[in-house]
Simulated scan of single mutants.
Amino acid sequence: MEKILSVKNLTKKFKRVVVNNISFDVERGNVYGLLGPNGSGKSTTFGMLLSTINPTSGDWFWFGKKGTTSETLKKIGAIIEQPNFYPYLSAETNLKIVAEIKGTPYARIDEVLSIVKLLERKKDQFKTYSLGMKQRLAIASALLNNPEVLILDEPTNGLDPEGIIQIREIIGTIAKQGITIIIASHLLDEIEKICSHVIVLKEGNAIYSGRVDEITTNTGFFELKADNNTSLLAALEELQWFTSVKIEGEIIKAQIRDDASISASGLNQKLSEKGIFLSHLAKKKQSLENQFLELVKTN
Rank of each mutant, 00 (worst) to 15 (best):
G58V: 11
I262Y: 06
A175I: 05
I276G: 01
Y208A: 02
E273D: 12
F242H: 08
I181Y: 00
D59F: 12
K283V: 08
G275C: 08
D227I: 04
E111W: 12
G266S: 05
S6P: 00
H280I: 10
T93C: 07
E192F: 03
F85S: 08
E250M: 11
I194D: 02
N268S: 15
L150P: 00
F126S: 10
Y129Q: 09
S90Y: 11
F222M: 09
L131W: 02
N84Y: 14
L267K: 07
R168N: 02
K284M: 06
L50G: 06
I262T: 10
T52E: 08
K176I: 11
E238S: 11
L239R: 11
T173W: 01
Y86E: 15
K8F: 06
K225I: 11
D259R: 10
K274A: 08
E92H: 11
E81R: 10
T104W: 01
N38C: 05
D227Q: 15
I22E: 05
Q166Y: 02
K193S: 07
S43E: 09
L232S: 07
L201E: 06
L281A: 03
I165L: 10
T56I: 11
L131M: 14
E192Q: 07
T180I: 03
I165K: 13
G204E: 04
I80P: 05
Q255P: 06
N9M: 05
Q269V: 12
E248Y: 09
T173A: 07
G29V: 11
I252Q: 01
E214Q: 15
G220P: 11
E100D: 14
Q286N: 08
N30E: 12
L152W: 01
T68R: 01
V198R: 03
K12H: 11
V18S: 05
E154F: 09
L224S: 07
Q269F: 14
I22Y: 02
L5V: 01
E120T: 12
R136T: 08
A175E: 00
K246A: 14
A107G: 08
L144E: 04
Q269I: 14
K270L: 13
L5S: 00
P105I: 14
N218C: 09
Q240G: 02
V7E: 04
I76R: 01
I97K: 05
N228P: 05
I167F: 03
S6A: 10
N290H: 10
K117E: 15
E2T: 12
L113P: 01
R168I: 02
D189H: 10
E238Y: 06
G103S: 09
I179C: 03
A138Q: 00
E250R: 03
N157Q: 06
P83A: 08
K12S: 09
E81C: 06
N9D: 12
L143Y: 00
L10V: 13
V26E: 02
V116K: 02
Q286K: 14
A254Y: 05
K297I: 12
F126E: 02
P161A: 04
E162K: 15
N84F: 15
T93W: 05
L236F: 03
E162T: 15
M133F: 12
L281M: 13
I115T: 15
T68F: 05
I171V: 11
R121K: 15
A99M: 06
I80K: 04
Q255N: 15
E294F: 13
G220C: 14
S57Q: 15
R108L: 13
S90A: 10
T219Y: 14
P87F: 14
T156D: 06
